[in-house]
Amino acid sequence: MVELTIDGIKTRVSEGTTVLEAASEMGITIPTLCYYPGLSCYGECRVCLVEVVKGDRSSLEASCTLPVEQGQVILTDSEKARKVRKVIVELLLASCPNSKTLQDMAANMGINKVRFKIKDRGCILCGRCVRYCKEQMKSGGIGFVGRGTSRRVATAFDVTPEECRNCGGCEWICPVNERACMAGNLIDGLCGGCQNLAPVETCPVCTGCSESVGPQGHRVYK
């Protein structure tokens, strides 16, 4: 067992656990996009960054890939982490504005303007589909092609491969596809449907139910 401190609370978890899992066990929600339970951790989206404090220094690490360590001190909601996450979601919105998941996340973080050029790639390259196809369906029909900004998810030579069983899992697991933003016109990269909402209510004890935060906010269980 490893003992660590998350947001000032001491906890003991078994070795090999990630900080994200440890926090989630404690009921602390850390925003995630490329993480999906049951799939390998990838560390692409950097939305789950947490502050790791080491003496008087601290660094930001992706909690989904960060293994717990004895004596670790983690801050999941520090100003530093929040500030960086906000810019990252802003960058994600700039490259994939028509995703309700992202729009909601932005609203939740208090982003009121996307300051970067909008280049709609329709995909955040989180690789959930790629990992699902390979790890859960044991197929490997899709993968990443290209590098840098020309990176995309594709089948080999853009031909439907024999490995593909048309299971539709890739579509189902996609955080962008899952809920497309229907707002239509975007202002400053935001749909406007969510951005002016009052801060969402949260349950007194959050169980990490994965209930999404939308224009209507969480359903609050009392």
């Binding site: 560390g43 692409e44 989206c45 950097r46 700039a94 970067f116 900004t149």
Partner: peptide, 21 residues
Amino acid sequence: LTGESCGKCVPCREGLDRMLD
């Protein structure tokens, strides 16, 4: 560096691209 970024993580891929813009 934008051209040489592997494109795996968001800050490097999208961040550098917007920085270049």
